[in-house]
């Protein structure tokens, strides 16, 4: 019997895409809330991220995305509304995003392993990564963030308040 050759399309990774979309939402709102209550995040934004600057995390080529905009000294969560931005951090595929967003690896390791790449001003991306590290300490328990951060911070009372705010107000309500 003659073999028939047909174009082949791979399916979708529904579970990983769903998880990454969920984490994009949590991380976006977490960053927004941290930029309101965490003094270290506020300082980073004040010193490095210009007003009106847009940031996009995006799974290449057209996967889940997370948009942010610097406004009034804070980061505003823009959901999936941005197509392009001043700074774009691309994940090369959904598996890389899944590994990072499920805290299997931190940003330095992902960068070292070429799993992410950056379009735009690298100095702003360095500041954003520091913000991301701080938010990870609020979102994840110590047993996880100690594994992915090069120098885990000490979590004093103020930081515990930030964590509570992010979980009870920032993520559910979005302020």
């Amino acid at each position: 019997m003659r073999k028939r050759y047909m174009p082949f399309r791979s399916g979708k990774k529904h579970f990983k895409t769903f998880v990454v979309k969920c984490v994009c939402f949590i991380l976006g709102r977490g960053l927004q809330a941290a930029s309101r209550v965490d003094a270290d995040v506020r300082r980073e934004i004040r010193e490095w991220i210009p007003e009106g600057f847009t940031i996009l995390f995006k799974v290449w080529p057209e996967g889940p995305r997370l948009g942010l905009e610097s406004r009034g000294g804070m980061l505003r969560f823009r959901g999936t509304s941005l197509d392009d931005a001043d700074l774009v951090i691309y994940f090369k595929n959904i598996d890389n995003a899944f590994m990072m967003f499920t805290a299997q690896m931190g940003v330095p390791q992902a960068f070292a392993e070429h799993r992410i790449f950056v379009k735009g001003d690298i100095s702003v991306s360095m500041s954003l990564i520091r913000c991301l590290n701080i938010v990870e300490t609020h979102l994840f328990p110590p047993i996880i963030y100690r594994r992915i951060l090069r120098r885990p911070p000490s979590m004093g009372l103020k930081k515990q308040f930030c964590r509570l705010y992010i979980y009870l107000v920032g993520i559910p309500i979005g302020i």
């Binding site: 960068f111 070292a112 690298i122 702003v124 360095m126 951060l149």
Partner: peptide, 17 residues
């Protein structure tokens, strides 16, 4: 301050603040 914005710090084994 300028050094903390340099991308090469990301690949340094130890954190440098």
């Amino acid at each position: 301050k300028t050094a903390t914005g340099d991308g090469s710090l990301l690949l340094n084994p130890e954190e440098l603040e």
